[in-house]
Design a protein around this nucleic acid. Structure first.
Lengths: 368, 368
DNA sequence: CTGAAAGCGCTAACAC
DNA sequence: GTGTTAGCGCTTTCAG
């Protein structure tokens, strides 16, 4: 272990002078071999297959390892064995932190437990995507995970070109054979609409997600399906374009308030958007659920702490991440998947419609 | 680029059978050399120093690279040159997603722009810390960043043992010579208390952060200092232990409500905690800021969307991350830091006390 | 049970 | 300008 003085030395020097002092080299396998009086092969075995060594040799080598503070250079090991233990997870930029952070926690916990290291790569624009593609083909990676319906792709090159084992998470890019772990967005959105219809609402204002987005498309389909089944489509649906962020909720609410004939129910594409919608509505003097019912999507913690608490679709965030990670590890190690997959290699996890204070029957005048 | 059939093939096979098909090997430098009719050295130059090649050769090699979809194996390169471009940022587990995700975005944007790859490692418990320490000494890393006052450390081994360039972010672990980029927590907390005193409040209820936490310690010191300066300490301060999460805010509010003689002002250790505090208080029928004033810390977006909007200390989240990343890159490349550092190698960024609806003068009966 | 030696893919002297 | 070659630190046959 470094003494405090040494730490100071290293950091201070590097901070101030131009490479005047080379980094202190850490012990290599040959150092350990020399110290223990054995060959490098023996040291290698002491680390990866200690049972192959005699009691005495093993003890001697292990002591030397400890003594020198030796850690194998994984870079070299990986180059030699031709496989790494790093996994890249691709996340769209600025994406709903309270939602994705919990999904990624599920990924992280599972992956680390299985001995992998997680690299998070944010998508945003072509430059960025190109770096990700290069990373994916650079030999560093053991596997790939993506949380977006669109894969990084720039002039003909795709992130899948490396041929890495890959799984999709929270969205299905629809690549043939690439498994996906997600919820059934369409069914979930249907249940949102059904909940509102059951309460007696007959028209819905919908602040959408970004056009073309996988989840948005599926959810939109669900809402339409439910309204259609109730014989209310298309008159009953008023759409307002949004993109999953606070600002969209705010603007959505302004659009709603400007309406001459306001629907009594509102669906926001996610909780973040719904929270902002709620705030703007209340600032305008309307009450929820007195004047209108509001429902979100995701089930982030903040939804519990609005006033009133937000009715929402709670996604199994941690479990989504954990399941996808488990599946990926199985693919990498070549064992059959323990996760149930349908014919398209998809695994759907259950959601929970959490009914809380933001939804209720419509005001008397608006019931049919 | 893979045809769709190949993608399917790869994934499907791996998913189903036990390593029956080896991964398709990607092109190596020697493949390109052969295809272009040059030596490997020339290919290497075409990638890293194209100006050293003649027009014709360069074109020929580049064409071959493109043709074969060659990406250099960074693992091999790094092993050879002895340095990597990966940076580990250590984050405490489950830590305030809306706050840290924005800080990390600042880190990520800056680092990627400088050509680095970011690895996020969560701390939690010794096992985990040991993995991080091993990662830090495995040859993979170019630098290290930590967002916690406590560094991963297990039986004598510290994450700094590898001698990597390292910078602290949002907290100062107090390692001699290790630079830190953060805000002045003490001064910020003083300004919170001062704001409340200026409004006329004379007693403060404080839901603390976790005992021993760097930020908590500094903030506590600030509150005490301000109250002391006003001649109100210690009588004026009622403390309630918390730990930065929703639940702490909820429990803090319950403790507050149970008080016989309630202070007219409340400081919560962070916004998340304050949001929960607010919710519980309102559910109990008290009004904010009518019955009590409430102030948070961090400046996350959700603070804007409470009812009323939360008065808080807005930290420059993105800038904190970006500044720390910039400094780290400079340390790695050996150039003098462009970031202003004090004698202890710290750089303090400015905060902003955002006064909003949750703070006001105390109710008439409670003024002095 | 242990050692010698080849080589993973790449870069950087050093020659020509 | 371009090629030859010696390793970076490690694992893994293959001998003994």
């Amino acid at each position: 272990m470094l003494s405090e003085k040494e730490i100071d030395y290293n950091t201070e020097i590097r901070l101030t002078y131009k490479r005047s002092i080379p980094a202190r080299r850490s012990a290599r396998i040959s150092d350990v071999a020399r110290a223990a009086g054995v060959s490098v092969a023996t040291v290698s075995r002491a680390v990866s297959a200690p049972e192959k060594l005699s009691e005495g040799t093993r003890r001697r080598v292990l002591a030397a390892i400890d003594e020198l503070g030796y850690t194998p250079n994984t870079l070299a090991r990986q180059l030699r064995v031709g496989s790494s233990r790093m996994i890249l997870v691709v996340v769209p930029r600025r994406s709903n932190p309270p939602f994705f952070s919990e999904v990624l926690r599920g990924v992280d916990v599972t992956l680390v437990e299985a001995g992998y290291v997680l690299i998070t790569g944010y998508m945003e624009g072509e430059d960025r995507d190109l770096r990700l593609i290069e990373l994916a083909t650079s030999g560093h990676l053991a596997g790939l995970m993506t949380t977006s319906g669109k894969l990084p792709q720039v002039n003909g090159r795709s992130i899948l070109d490396g041929g890495l084992p890959a799984v999709a998470l929270c969205a299905d890019p629809g690549v043939k054979g690439m498994p996906a772990v997600l919820i059934d967005d369409e069914a979930a959105a249907r249940s949102q609409a059904r909940h509102l219809l059951e309460l007696g609402h007959r028209r819905i204002f919908y602040v959408t997600g970004p056009a073309g987005n996988y989840n948005e498309t599926a959810r939109h389909r669900g809402i339409v399906a439910e309204l259609t089944a109730a014989g209310l489509y298309p008159e009953a649906l008023v759409e307002c374009p949004g993109d999953y962020v606070f600002e969209a909720g705010h603007r959505g609410a302004e659009a709603y308030l400007a309406l001459a004939d306001r629907p009594s129910a509102v669906i926001c594409s996610n909780d973040e958007c719904a929270v902002a919608f709620m705030k703007t509505i209340r600032s305008a003097g309307l009450t929820i659920p007195g004047d209108l019912s509001l429902i979100g999507f995701d089930g982030i913690e903040f939804a519990d702490y609005c006033e009133p608490a937000l009715t929402t679709i709670a996604q199994p965030r941690f479990e989504l991440g954990a399941t996808a990670a488990k599946l990926l590890v199985e693919m990498i190690s070549g064992v059959p998947p323990s996760v149930d997959l349908d014919a398209q290699n998809r695994s759907f996890l259950d959601v929970d419609l959490k009914v809380r204070g933001s939804t209720a029957a419509p005001p008397a005048g608006q019931r049919d």
